[in-house]
Design a protein around this nucleic acid. Structure first.
Lengths: 344, 344
DNA sequence: TTGAAAGCGCTACCAA
DNA sequence: TTGGTAGCGCTTTCAA
């Protein structure tokens, strides 16, 4: 409201009758200051409505106090959980998360990365192991710890906290096969923009092959990222062409739910006529009826572990340069009603 | 990776054989600089891997280039859309969004507000009109435009972009009544933490009363914010106590979906035996079967409009102090299968 | 179009 | 425990 410019440390110092330096110390928890002066200074600060300017503090101390994190989408429960984990894991150390999202666009990732690096974060977290060439260069030259999450890249930039998306696809293919399904389909997005989705599909296809099953039921979607509606459409397409399909894995629980709704609308029973599986362990996989078999990828844990890697990297002395860490997060299969054994 | 400290403008200036001031100008689009020197400077910058330090720039120019935004939850499609709108609406002006979430905790909001204000944002966006006393003071004294969103507070701090949550409740109550339902329930969270949810409930109750309908079917939930599972539990409780309920509004589509799953699990037909309505126009309200009647609150539009208010406020001269703006976002009823006319 | 001087608000460092 | 000095990396302002 009031446009008068905010008061500074010098103003507080003057009012409290001390030097600015003493104010600076009084305002920090672990700096030496007598209780009496600290109290006096806090009162003066309160009276002036003083708020510390942390960009100035950061410029001087060379610690900005934040961590940049770039995720593909802000409207996604999995990434939201990762951000929660990261935020909570960083809380104690006082680091704030500067969050950005790319809409699954690598050029936007590059743009955001540069914009964030200008703010001098103390570490940077990016999603996945695929980046533009220029973006990789920015990250590698950033001078701060880089953590790639949600994947296990073969040539990581530095630290990695994630899981193998190809293995995720393989695990679910084997599970469906173990349940007795034979004519198994896959529904996912266009492979170019979401590399993790593409990896899941690849792993799924490999597993079908090695199990001696047909791989013709791998269904795409025009959209880069597949939502409920597109999952529903894809299932219509798949069933129109291959009505005898007995099980389908979808790249996420979100698309799986849409696919399941299509089955129900078409009068198919799940899982008696067709089984449905997703991944991500979204709330909906538990609440839907039938509930949806899924894989928990440890989204929240990824955030927590990434935070640990960051805190660890920042606390080590410059001299003892840390080895790049590679944290693999375990996946957990969650069996639910949607993949009960086939009736045949 | 490399821990050597990043190069500065002075380094670039030295390499290009110009003064730092000239580098500063060459790096900005609208500053005077000859094409020749600009080219020379960009090459030098590229060679050094130079990245501008925008906190230093902000300290000097008194423009940090970001907007603080505080939302209750990061795992919520509605708020995600608002953030998308805000981000997109701000893109052209080069302002970045510094995002924080409170988990519907006003004390956390206060904490975050202070932390964000330290970063000297050029404007601050907060959700709702209810804040701690201290938080209100911080905001009012911040010296930058304050925008409260997702509500229409009676005593706003400054600008407002939102809608009336009480009216939302009234609208849906009237709609259900118009459809012929008489024994109407409401499912929502505990009223203390989510003031917008509480307003919806209040408006709903008022409308039932003025329509001469019973208001005994207003159902709470132990949880502050009600998710799918809690919506499902609440519906079980409601049906156990009032099996003759013929329609239920849920505070959000998320809880409405859970509630609907409970009905289906119990063998009830939706909408023949019981109608379900939600609000928020989440994807699931369209994709679920039956699809769920809902109210679109213009979540994305809220973000866009908030961005307009911000850009507007910042472009005005200090002298011509802007009047506080109050933008009401229209709500749209979306009728779907879940509230087809009752069979009785 | 370019440069020099000054300083944004704070903290590291050293001295008292 | 406190204070003075210097300077973080940049931009503003004014002069050339």
């Amino acid at each position: 409201m009031s446009k008068k410019k905010p008061s500074t440390m010098t103003d507080v110092a003057r009012l409290a009758g001390v030097s600015p330096m003493t104010v600076s110390r009084a305002l920090r928890p672990n700096a030496p200051a007598s209780e009496a002066t600290r109290k006096k200074i806090l009162e003066a600060a309160d009276q002036l409505g003083y708020v510390l300017d942390s960009s100035a503090a950061g410029l001087s101390s060379r610690k900005t106090g934040f961590i940049a994190a770039i995720i593909p989408s802000i409207n996604n429960g999995n990434f939201a959980n990762t951000v929660r984990g990261l935020t909570e894991g960083l809380r104690e150390s006082g680091l704030q998360v500067l969050l950005g999202f790319t809409d699954y666009d690598l050029n936007e990732e590059e743009r955001l990365t540069e914009a964030f690096l200008r703010r001098r974060p103390e570490a940077i977290v990016v999603t996945g192991g695929v980046h533009t060439e220029r973006c990789r260069r920015y990250l590698a030259a950033s001078g701060v710890p880089v953590i790639e999450i949600w994947d296990l890249p073969i040539s990581p930039i530095e630290h990695v906290v994630g899981f193998s998306n190809a293995r995720l696809g393989r695990m679910m293919a084997r599970h469906l096969h173990d349940q007795g399904y034979k004519k198994i389909g896959f529904i996912g997005g266009n492979t170019n923009r979401d590399s993790r989705g593409a990896d899941r599909r690849r792993g799924f296809e490999e597993a079908l092959e090695s199990l001696g099953l047909e791989t013709k039921r791998l269904w795409g979607s025009a959209a880069p990222i597949i939502d409920m509606e597109q999952g529903a459409e894809a299932m219509n397409g798949l069933l129109d062409q291959y009505p005898d399909t007995d099980a389908v894995m979808c790249v996420s629980d979100i698309s799986a739910f849409g696919a399941m709704m299509t089955c129900i609308r078409r009068g198919l029973k799940v899982p008696e006529d067709i089984a449905i599986a997703g991944s991500g362990a979204y709330d909906i996989s538990a609440s839907a009826y039938p509930s949806i078999t899924t894989l928990d990828v440890g989204d929240y844990t990824i955030g927590i572990e990434a935070a640990k890697v960051i805190v660890d990297s920042l606390s080590s002395k410059d001299s003892e340069k840390k080895e790049p860490q590679r944290v693999e997060i375990p996946m957990t299969l969650i069996e639910r009603e949607s993949t009960g054994s086939p009736s045949v």
